[in-house]
Computed example of a mutant assay.
Amino acid sequence: MKTPLILFIALMLATQLHAQDSDREFTLSAFADVYYAYDFNNPLNNSRQYVTQAARHNEFNLNWGYLLAEYSAKRVRSSFGLQTGTYVQYNYAAEPNELTKMIYQANAGIKIKEGIWVDAGIITPHTGYEGVASIDNEIYTRALGTEYTPYYLTGVKLSAALNDKLDVTAVVVNGWQIIAETNNAKSVGVNLQYRPTEELTLSYGNLIGNEQPGFVGSRKVRNYHNAWIKYTFNPKFHAVGSFDYGVQELLGSAESGHFVMAMLIAEYKVSEKLAIGGRVENMRDDDEILVNTSGGGFNLSTYSMTGTLNVADNAKLRVEAKYGSDANAIFLSQDATTHDDFFLLVGSLAMRFTK
């Protein structure tokens, strides 16, 4: 447990020695997102099912906290971050090494030419609209399309800003949100982000690879695609639409199954301090490729409303009400009863500090 802290301190001290050089920059940042969530289903063991964000019921807790050191120079850059919180507890549960669960980012990059970088290590994903940090999103909780697609990847990423309107990214990674390799295959993906006007952003990304664990045996290729569009109508109002589609060969079958996720987000800024956001979404995974409900299939729709108070430039106070319903009774309560819907109230204070 001491090793990541030692590495973090070493990086901080080493890069600080060069902080005065005009071509070199060292940044230290910290983030904390504390929350209280109440799920009216009173979930079993106070653990909310099918989510990694705000995952604990009736409990004050840290959703996500990190310390991140970043170094950049004319031709190289690197970052190393440590993390903790209930998000880490739930999202990294499949990682076999307790040490790696603590690592938020660990990568190094080289600039090939102006606007073109190659980074390797534990990296941020190239697909999806929402990010892992709640402070950067319109809605406090994450969409299902975010929860069930990668929050992190491990491998090599090529990113190129071709001009002021078009960015291209390509990755070769170990697999679908994993640090430790689980088979002999690698996954590949690309992302294109196009900004034809200041108001409009279009994005398309994919990730294709064998997601069958084991170094011997059959391959089960997952072919995943994501597209989103954001339009800013005026300085106070914008909307985002996102669509995810994936196909994967099924276990014990020559056939393939698929999953579909769609969402719509809108945010209105009432004032400089106050904003109101809403999100509707649906995720359907009848073949349980991404979601395990013990055989009933997954067909969940949710409806969220978030109020955001910008208490400072680097801090947000959020309150969210969220309702969800599924075609099956997949939510388990403390008294062993099951429900086909849920209602959640959650409050959060998130703050980011950068030096």
Rank of each mutant, 00 (worst) to 15 (best):
P150W: 00
Y151C: 00
Y152M: 02
T154R: 00
V156C: 11
N163M: 05
K165H: 11
D167H: 09
D167E: 13
T169Y: 14
V171S: 07
V172D: 13
V172E: 13
V172W: 15
G175W: 07
W176M: 11
I178S: 15
I179Q: 08
T182V: 13
T182W: 05
N183W: 08
N183H: 09
N184K: 15
V188A: 05
G189M: 05
V190R: 00
N191V: 01
Y194R: 10
E198Q: 14
E198Y: 08
E199F: 02
E199S: 14
L200G: 08
L202H: 13
L207R: 02
P213H: 04
F215Q: 05
V216I: 14
V216A: 11
V216D: 08
G217P: 12
S218F: 04
R219C: 05
R222H: 08
Y224C: 02
N226L: 02
A227D: 04
I229H: 01
K230P: 06
K230C: 01
Y231E: 04
T232H: 09
S242W: 04
D244S: 06
D244L: 06
G246T: 09
V247Y: 02
Q248Y: 00
L251Y: 06
E255S: 14
F259D: 10
F259S: 12
F259I: 02
F259A: 12
M261V: 09
M263L: 12
L264E: 03
I265V: 14
